[in-house]
């Protein structure tokens, strides 16, 4: 009997304790004695990392937005309407949403965009941060200026010999005769001549950046026409595409003028030169009837080429003279220098 009473006592005790425990677990909104404060409330933060890729026009718009919130379990992003939430993981079934922990965004272009992250914990506490993302298209690297050899037409050794010529570095005998040396514009041995009634030319290949714009400046003087002249000389400037070089030819860029060959490279026929498809620029300058030195300026775009050739010749004369199918007219033309600069 005594044992039974003991059992009853124990069960009563247990029952009362359990009720007490259950009641004390009831939900209560207000802190009570013994409640602990939430010492680790959420703190929202994120970083935005711009994509730096090879597709310069597009990649700068893509941002990897990485959550860096502390003590947070749930996330809600607010993005402007014109900003696209990217799904970079197209293999899986899930699609990112504005409640994903990390998101990837594509902005429409340059500008400032407001991104807000609200992070929360399971106690319902929230934290919000708003950042302005300034989307800037990175500046393209400067296109370097092309390197021309003997661009001042100085009288230099030619073809590895002791012979000197202002045309050194500028001769391609397959498509014209060499321009000869002279003095002028206040200097000496500093001019290349396109003689009257001769198929004189200058030709040189140089490296370019594809799809870049360039400016050519040529400092030139035309002799004034005489009373009896029949043919008016004109100076024709062409930029010939590397895609038109003879088959299998890889251009070599020499460091000094005397290293250049004078035939069998790049362009080898006038037909090749005059093929419209090979020309990035054709400009013809008529005689201004004034023999002072004038700078003529032209521009071209390199298109798909990483190499081009500058070809300048005197035209306007009797094409029957000589063996190239062109000659200059009755007046001599003199060139002092040529410079080509990249337009950045």
């Amino acid at each position: 009997m005594k044992t039974k009473l003991n059992y009853l006592k124990t069960y009563t005790w247990l029952f009362v304790t359990s009720i007490a425990v259950l009641i004390s677990c009831q939900d209560d909104d207000l802190p009570e004695v013994g409640d602990l404060p939430d010492l680790t409330p959420p703190s929202a933060n994120f970083v935005a990392i711009q994509k730096e890729g090879t597709n310069l026009e597009e990649d700068f718009k893509v941002y990897f937005i990485t959550n860096q919130s502390v003590s947070s379990t749930d996330y809600k992003w607010d993005i402007p309407e014109n900003v696209v939430l990217l799904d970079l993981d197209t293999d899986d079934d899930s699609t990112p949403s504005l409640t994903s922990e990390n998101i990837n965004l594509e902005f429409p272009g340059e500008g400032t965009f407001e991104i807000t992250l609200t992070s929360s914990d399971k106690l319902g506490k929230t934290s919000t941060i708003t950042k302005n993302i300034e989307v800037i298209e990175p500046e393209k690297p400067d296109v370097p200026n092309p390197v021309l050899v003997n661009s001042d037409f100085d009288r230099l050794p030619k073809l590895g010999s002791t012979n000197t010529c202002s045309c050194s570095g500028w001769d391609n005998d397959d498509i014209g005769e060499q321009g000869e040396s002279s003095s002028g514009n206040g200097g000496s041995d500093n001019i290349v001549k396109f003689d009257n009634n001769e198929p004189d030319h200058v030709y040189q290949e140089f490296a370019v950046t594809p799809n870049a714009d360039y400016t050519i400046e040529i400092l030139v003087s035309f002799k004034e026409p005489g009373a009896t002249d029949t043919f008016q000389s004109m100076l024709e400037t062409r930029v010939l595409a590397g895609s038109g070089y003879i088959d299998g030819y890889t251009p070599t860029y020499y460091a000094t003028a005397e290293e250049f060959p004078n035939s069998g490279y790049g362009y080898t026929t006038i037909a090749q030169v005059e093929d419209a498809a090979n020309n990035l620029l054709i400009q013809t300058q008529a005689n201004p009837n004034d023999d002072s030195y004038v700078t003529y300026t032209y521009t071209f775009n390199s298109g798909a080429n990483d190499s081009v050739a500058l070809f300048i010749r005197g035209v306007g004369g009797d094409p029957a003279i000589g063996s190239y199918g062109y000659t200059s007219g009755d007046q001599e033309i003199r060139a002092d220098s040529v410079t080509i600069t990249a337009t950045n």
């Binding site: 970083v47 990392i49 994509k51 730096e52 990897f64 959550n67 970079l88 293999d91 990390n102």
Partner: peptide, 20 residues
């Protein structure tokens, strides 16, 4: 290139890459 390349790599392999 860590973020773009590893994001792609992670997506291709079902991993959880983020810049963190």
């Amino acid at each position: 290139q860590a973020v773009p390349i590893l994001t792609q790599f992670s997506n291709d392999n079902g991993y959880n890459f983020s810049a963190n």
